[in-house]
């Protein structure tokens, strides 16, 4: 990762409101970042693998970080995670699961399939903000990304 360049975050989220929340939070953060938002699992895969609607090398730069919701239409978040981690080119991209589900099984599955972190969307506004801030600090400020 070249210093100074914005961190590309792929946001895979089907709920527009939630996407908006994330977007709003990340927009204001000091670390430069660019969000790519896809609304379902299939789109996420298409983007990552340069296929389907995203066929063509230009469209879709490789993200540095993937924020992944589990409940996605078409292709499930877990499946996406699996696919990402199965691919040599993509598997080093840290993937953080951001979901409303606090089910143990989902968490275990996420980690089993190679998730880097598991975050549960809090219902509280302050908490959500706090979470986003922390996330930003940790993942965008402190965390180092491989090339």
């Amino acid at each position: 990762m070249v210093q100074g360049e914005p961190i590309i975050i792929l946001l895979v989220e089907d709920d527009p409101a939630h996407a908006e929340i994330v977007r709003r939070n990340l927009r204001d953060f000091r670390v430069a970042n660019r969000i790519v938002h896809v609304e379902d699992g299939q789109a996420a895969l298409d983007y990552l693998f340069h296929q389907g609607a995203y066929a063509g090398a230009q469209s879709g730069a490789r993200p540095n970080l993937i924020l992944l919701d589990l409940r996605l239409p078409k292709v499930d978040g877990l499946e996406v995670l699996r696919r990402i981690k199965a691919d040599d080119g993509l598997k080093r991209i840290p993937t953080v699961v951001l979901t409303t589900s606090d089910a143990e099984s989902d968490m275990v599955n996420a980690y089993t399939n190679g998730a880097g972190s598991y975050l549960v969307k809090p219902v509280n506004f302050e908490k959500f903000t706090g979470l986003m801030e922390a996330f930003e600090f940790y993942w965008l400020a402190w965390n180092r990304f491989p090339d």
């Binding site: 709003r24 409303t100 509280n124 506004f125 903000t129």
Partner: peptide
């Protein structure tokens, strides 16, 4: 239950968060 918790929780998250924003 999962779906309920998820799908109900989702709008709830939205509402609460945006209430905050609204504030």
């Amino acid at each position: 239950t999962y779906a309920v918790s998820h799908d109900l929780k989702s709008p709830l998250v939205t509402i609460r968060t945006f209430l905050g924003y609204l504030e």
